[in-house]
Amino acid sequence: MTILLQALLNGIMNGTLIAVPAIGFTAIFAVLRFPNFAIAAYATIGAFAAWWVNVHLGAGVLPALIVAFAVAGFAGVAAEETALKGLRGSGALTVAIGSIALNVVLENIIRLYFGNDLRGYDLPIVPDWRFLGLRVGPQQLQSLMIAVAIMAAMFAFLRFTKFGKAMRAVADNADLARLKGIDPAKVALLTVFLGAGLAGTGGVLIGLDASIDPMLGYRVLLTVFAAAVLGGLGSIQGAVAGALLIGIAEECALLVIPPTYRSAVGFIAILLVLTLRPRGIFGERAA
């Protein structure tokens, strides 16, 4: 029982970390209607930006997260404008493939400047707290709270601000939104900034738990994608639910299957969703 509870706990922790970039991924999909795989590189860019200000300027976790958000957001906008925008006319598949290529390019630019070495944030590491035979890391709890705060801010933004409402309007029905005088180009730009920024902060949270290298984003890309698909592409609540489910499934799966097959959980989730409920848990229409 304790074993299962611990796996559940680990799953929730993992899931919340995955949820942040998954929201970014799904938000971009909601507005621009294509899966942006360059999200992996944005996560890595965010992690490295935060590392830089942390190690060179001594920034703490929160300022580093803000820097990561801004840098990854601007990198996302720049990449979108130069590389992906021109492809939009050729259909979603073309842009999606373009984003895979963009991801490889960005990842290697990071490699060019920072090299392949492993890096860790200059933060103290503390042993886990133990209670009732379970263990949980203070650092993880901190990441969990940050992730929850980011998600809350994102929901509030979508619900109460003009831009947030505009984003939802475009996601819901782009033509109707245009008739109402919403400029889709502006909304698209803001969404990419937000999506890439969220991926960047997600990258930092993942890096805090382990270590960072140019492959950081790529390693979690499948899980992030699976979370978004599971929750329903384009649905923000869906991304959160999907991420939690995938996180818990991955950890609990370890109790019955060898850990080497952990990555298979993501694939199986995608397969099941596409077979049984292609629109995902929260998706309103078939994607």
Binding site: I3, A7, N10, M13, E251, P259
Partner: peptide, 20 residues
Amino acid sequence: SLVYDDKKPSYRSEVDEIMR
């Protein structure tokens, strides 16, 4: 022994198994 997937960002549950 335990063989893990080296593409994952964290190994908490794996370490739980080691500790058991």
